[in-house]
Structures are given as structure tokens and as C-alpha cells.
Design a protein around this nucleic acid. Structure first.
Lengths: 356, 356
DNA sequence: GAGACGGGGTTATACGTAAAACGTGGAGGT
DNA sequence: ACCTCCACGTTTTACGTATAACCCCGTCTC
């Protein structure tokens, strides 16, 4: 006779093993010491294996009132950096029996192309409105880790009062949410000191046009550090974080009147890659004519020619620490809040300015 | 008095609105036409809003026996390409009320660093064994989309008999699973024809050392296409898909005796970036001394100097089509199986070989 | 004026699991 | 001979939702 088409339940296993459903739950839940004999436990395990039993997670989640699932909200998925964050978070999570579900904030999944006209169960469906982070991730959640860059999703997040950990967010302004931050300020200080030490005085800051605390920090710290050296100037130009956006913005900045900057500090490696293109087009050589720095240390950084001097951020550690903080909150403990150290990596894109 | 700490349920809403729980479910489920008066419906909606009610998804999933959640299995998350696939899949999914959960196959989340010794609820926890794709994603699932590159996860996947769509997998060998494929073979043909047309005869194939159908296709098609032109040779060297891995492999290949190849066909843009580095170190110029092609058209491709001639894959469309295929399967329909067209993008990295 | 009908709900149930509460039969103690 | 206790289970319940089945009352029909 044909196998039943529905998945086996714990009751099916119980019947096969000749025990009650409760016994199955105890054995498979590893809570049977002294309550079920070893022989019976083995019969249950064998029956479960034979039937290919897998517990129904919806039922378990409902029963336990907890899902061991966590949402990771990222600004978009197109960046290697957040891939690293996810990897780290997922590693820690899985070591604790948790799962991680990603939510890339809407601009990433908005209808950039005409919405497809598919049907469901034969009936045409209207496209959904802007997807709610939680509806979109369907899974019931125990908590949330959110990048401060995913600003558009944050309001929806604060609506639910799930335990929340913010990544790279203003520690004073986060209204009680735990924060885990990279020590970006220190990274920018290192960059500034490096360039100042080489003799640079005219800076161009290629800034990301994202309203997020972590980018404000970059601007503030660069200004503060250079201000301590007399005769130093910083001009700022904003660009979207994309190679083409950065190229355009850099070309515009270079076309401006006045003395050319000797150092170009970019908020991000990707911006630096775009800057390289702009500089090539104008016939400027890195680092002879202008020094360039990035921030992130993506694979891209060493693919560039010359290789990029940048600040290495440990994305995976960032994700790990984020998840650990969330576990701490779920556990009622105080999350550790020490900033994650970053490291300047000097490569071939920085050199002393030419004698002017 | 302080608000209750537990989330409100549909019963709480019912009480607040002075109706039964069933009525709440009907109204909020949009199934109340002719069963509940407009006035009552409005009362219910208002109560739900006031209480901040959100349906418990675990309960809903249990009740409906369906989760509207789908798992996307990818080889790793460190690639821009799969970020695009996810974006496309999530877009289609959300338009159909589905969610997408990512599962990056284990090498991405294995214990590459010593497993942290945190505790849960005060008790220390042993690290979990290799995470099961489904346990890891916790969420109950309706179906799976899997890249053929995530080979290590595939066996676990076939264990459950969830509806499955394979990405870039051998259509004849997929045992009934639906497949959605990019027309990689055509892309390789275009690359080969482009290079042959320029006059190249000595090829080096920088191949990804991943056992996956999509990479076999590249090798096979390159061999077949070049075989049609007399006097053509193809040497192959394998490398892991990383810039450093590709650099090392390319340097080794260039050090080999015999005439130097004039065209370097890479399985992937990232490999091409590594090859650039190797070529620079040997003082070889692209495209004067050697032409290079990639495959993917990542942002990286235009960050390189010279910009990379490559095959553009529409990752988002790939994800969309994958999700559409899965929806079709879930719907009992026949998924469309036409390959997704790809496009050669000629940039500055290819040119005729120098007269030898 | 009896029956049909429909609008506007309510009651009851099932989904699969975890675990608290409840036997039960026999060994051991006094 | 009676109580205790333990080893080994079982019975029962609750989680929150969706929906089938039911129910009541006013109106309309013939």
C-alpha cells in the first residue's frame, strides 16, 4: 500500500514504537533519563528513523512560545560586508540552536522591475504592499538584530517589542536597545594620522550619502583629527555606495576649482573603487598624484591596482558579537558593549604627497 | 496599571471588541463579506490596532499546515551574485505573500574560529553538530530552492520530500526536481566565438574547483567550441573561487613551460580579478599581452583596470524565475523551463593577440 | 402563518508538540 | 501487612489560529 502523503507526526512514531506520543516527545527531546527505559527509548528512536520523522516546527514553536529564530535586518544584500555579518551571526546562532533569518530592507526588494503577473492557486494576485519585515520573514521570531543603515525598516521594528540589538548605532540614542559597534572612530583616526604623517594637508572626503550614525562618525572624526593639525583642509562630497555613483561624484569634485586635494578618504572600499575609475579617466595616478583610502577591506580592496590602503573591519566578528549580545538579552544578562577594534591596513594606494 | 507582558492574541482582540475570537479571525483574514457587519468589522480592526495585535505565525502555520516560507540554499553568502538571486526570489515571494529564508551551506558557517563558550538561560551549551539546513532555518518550510553549488546540503535536502527547485543543475539528472538554469553554455559559446574571432588560438581556462554541473558545462562548451577551429588548444587550471586562490593558480600556470596562452578564460569574475593580479606581478599587460574574460558581471568587473570583458548573468531574474518555478510546483502547475539568456559584455580586457 | 432564507454572528474543533499531572505494579523497609 | 518509593509510562492539557458547523432572529414568499 502506498505511503501516506503527509509527513509523519510524533503520534505516528508512537504507534510504530508501541508507546504513547508523550514518550516519543520525551525520548526525542532528550528528557527521558529515569522516565523511559533504554530499550523503549531505542525503539522510539528507531521508529523515528524508519519513518523519517521530523518534528513540526510550527507546532513546537506554538507550544514553546519561542522559535529560536532571529531576524537579521541589513541595508541590502549586495554587499560582501553584510554577508560576513550574517555568517558570523549564523555561526554563533547555530551553536546555540538558533536560526537566523535575513531581512534586506525594502529598497533591496522593491519593484525595480515591473511586478510579474503570476497567479496563485489559479487566481491572479495583486502585488503586496511594502513588505513588513516580520510578515516577509514569516517565521515567528525571538529577537532582532538590525543594522542602523536599514533606516527604513527601523520604525516597523520598534513597533513590535521584540528584543533588539542594533549594529553600528548611536549608543546614546538607541532608547534602551543594546548596541554592538565597530570602533569606526578609531579606524578613521588611524587613517587620518597615517595620511597626516605622510604629509598630506588637503583632504577630499568621499562620503556615503546614507543617513546613519556610522557615517556621521566618519565625518566627525575626520574633521576632529585633521583640525588638530594647522593648515589642513577637508572638502566633502557625497555619493551613493556604488562604483558608478562614486565615479561620478569624484569626477565632479575633481573638476571643481582650487588646488587639487592630495588625499582622498573614502567611507567605503566600493567608493574607493569608483574613485579609482574617476582618477584614471583624468589621468591621475595613485598614489603618485593622489593618495586614496577605503574602509571595510573587502576582496575588492586587493583587486584594485594599486592595492587599497584601508581599514579592516571584521564583519564576521561583528555578526558574532551581535548575536552574542542578542542571546545575552534573551537570557536576561547584560550584553557586553565594548567596541570591536579595527585595523589600518597600509597598502600601495597611499604615499607622501609630491612636493607641490 | 502596567501592560501585560505577553503579546495580545486574537482572543484579547475579541474581548476588547466585544465579539468572539472567530469573528476576529474572519475580519482580519478578510473573509467576512456577508458574515460580519461593516460596523463590527471596524470595531475589530480598531481593537486590533489599539492592542498592537499581530497574529502568532507559529499558530497560523500549524493550523494551516503551510508556512508560506521557502528556503533558499546558496553555496555561500560572500558573493554578490547570490545576493542578487535572493533579491529576485524575495521580490517574487513577497508579491505572493511568501517569505524567503536563506541557508548558506555549512562551509560558510562552520567553526572556522573556536566556538564561543556562551550560555543559554544560565546553563552552558554544547556546540551543535553540523547544522541541518532545516533545523538551522528553524522556520517551517513549504519548499526549497537550491543552488547546485551547495552540494553538501543537497543530500539533506532530498531527505525531506519538500517541493524542490534546483538552480543551474543538470536537467536530466535532477530526478524529477524542477530546474531553472542560466544559459551558461551559450555564454561560453559567445566568449569562445569572440576570442576566436579576434584570432586567439592558445587558451588557458581558469576553472573553478567546485563540483557542480554549471562549471562542467563551462569546460565542456569551451572545449567543444574551440575544437571546431583547427590549431586551437585549451589548457585548464583549477582554482578556488577567491581572488587569492586565482592569483596563485594563475601564477603557477604561467610558470609552466611551453608557449604562453594568449587568452585566459575565467569561470568567474572573481577568478579574473585574481588573474589580473598574477599577470601584473609577471609584468604582463591586459589585453596587449593576454586577453582575459570573466563570467558574472559583478561590480568588480568594471572596477578592474582594464574593465573586464565578461558574460552578464541576470542574478535577480534568476532568483525571480526560481521562485516562480517553485510557486508553480506548489500550485500543481508545470514550471516553465526555458533557459535564461545571458549576454556577452565586451570591455577592455580583450583584444587581438599580438603577432607572434 | 408556515416555511425558506440570509445576515450576523457563536461554538467547537483540529493542527502537532511539550510537559505537567497522574497512574501502576512491584521492590524494599519496618 | 501496610506504607513508601521508584521505574516506567500514560492521559491530559494548552499553545493561538482558521474554519466548519451550528444557531438565532427578522423578513419575504406563497
Amino acid at each position: 500500500m502506498p505511503r501516506s502523503s503527509t509527513r509523519p507526526t510524533s503520534r505516528d512514531v508512537a504507534q510504530a514504537a508501541g508507546v504513547s506520543q508523550a514518550a516519543v516527545s520525551l525520548v526525542l527531546g532528550d528528557k527521558w533519563r529515569g522516565r523511559v527505559s533504554e530499550a523503549t527509548a531505542e525503539r522510539v528512536r528507531e521508529a523515528a528513523r524508519d519513518l523519517g520523522y521530523r518534528p513540526n516546527l510550527a507546532a513546537r514553536n506554538l507550544r514553546l512560545g519561542r522559535t529560536r529564530t532571529v531576524l537579521l535586518v541589513v541595508p541590502a544584500l549586495t554587499t560582501e560586508f553584510f554577508a560576513g555579518v550574517y555568517t558570523g551571526a549564523a555561526r554563533v546562532a547555530s551553536a546555540h540552536g538558533f536560526g537566523v533569518v535575513l531581512y534586506p530592507s525594502p529598497e533591496g526588494i522593491g519593484p525595480s522591475r515591473p511586478s510579474p503577473t503570476t497567479t496563485l492557486k489559479g487566481r491572479p494576485l495583486r502585488a503586496a504592499p511594502i513588505p513588513d519585515p516580520f510578515a516577509s520573514a514569516q517565521a515567528a521570531l525571538d529577537g532582532v538584530i538590525a543594522s542602523s543603515m536599514a533606516a527604513d525598516a527601523l520604525s516597523a521594528i520598534r513597533g513590535d517589542q521584540l528584543p533588539l540589538v542594533m549594529l553600528d548605532s548611536d549608543p546614546s540614542g538607541s532608547l534602551g536597545a543594546a548596541t554592538v559597534n565597530l570602533d569606526i572612530a578609531d579606524g578613521v583616526r588611524q587613517v587620518a594620522d597615517h595620511l597626516l604623517g605622510l604629509g598630506h594637508r588637503r583632504f577630499l572626503h568621499l562620503a556615503a550619502d546614507i543617513a546613519s550614525w556610522t557615517f556621521e562618525v566618519r565625518a566627525r572624526e575626520l574633521a576632529a583629527r585633521t583640525a588638530s593639525v594647522p593648515g589642513t583642509s577637508v572638502r566633502t562630497v557625497r555619493a551613493p555606495i556604488s562604483i558608478e555613483g562614486a565615479r561620478t561624484a569624484t569626477e565632479a569634485a575633481l573638476a571643481a576649482p582650487g588646488p587639487r586635494p592630495t588625499a582622498l578618504v573614502c567611507d567605503d572600499d566600493k567608493l574607493a573603487a569608483g574613485a579609482y575609475k574617476a582618477l584614471r579617466r583624468r589621468g591621475l595616478r595613485v598614489p603618485d598624484d593622489i593618495s586614496v583610502t577605503g574602509l571595510d577591506d573587502l576582496a575588492l580592496a586587493t583587486a584594485l591596482d594599486p592595492e587599497l590602503t584601508t581599514v579592516r573591519l571584521d564583519a564576521e566578528l561583528f555578526g558574532e558579537r551581535g548575536m552574542q549580545a542578542l542571546l545575552a538579552v534573551l537570557d536576561g544578562r547584560e550584553p557586553e558593549s565594548r567596541d570591536i577594534p579595527v585595523e589600518l591596513v597600509v597598502r600601495g594606494s597611499t604615499a607622501p604627497p609630491r612636493a607641490s
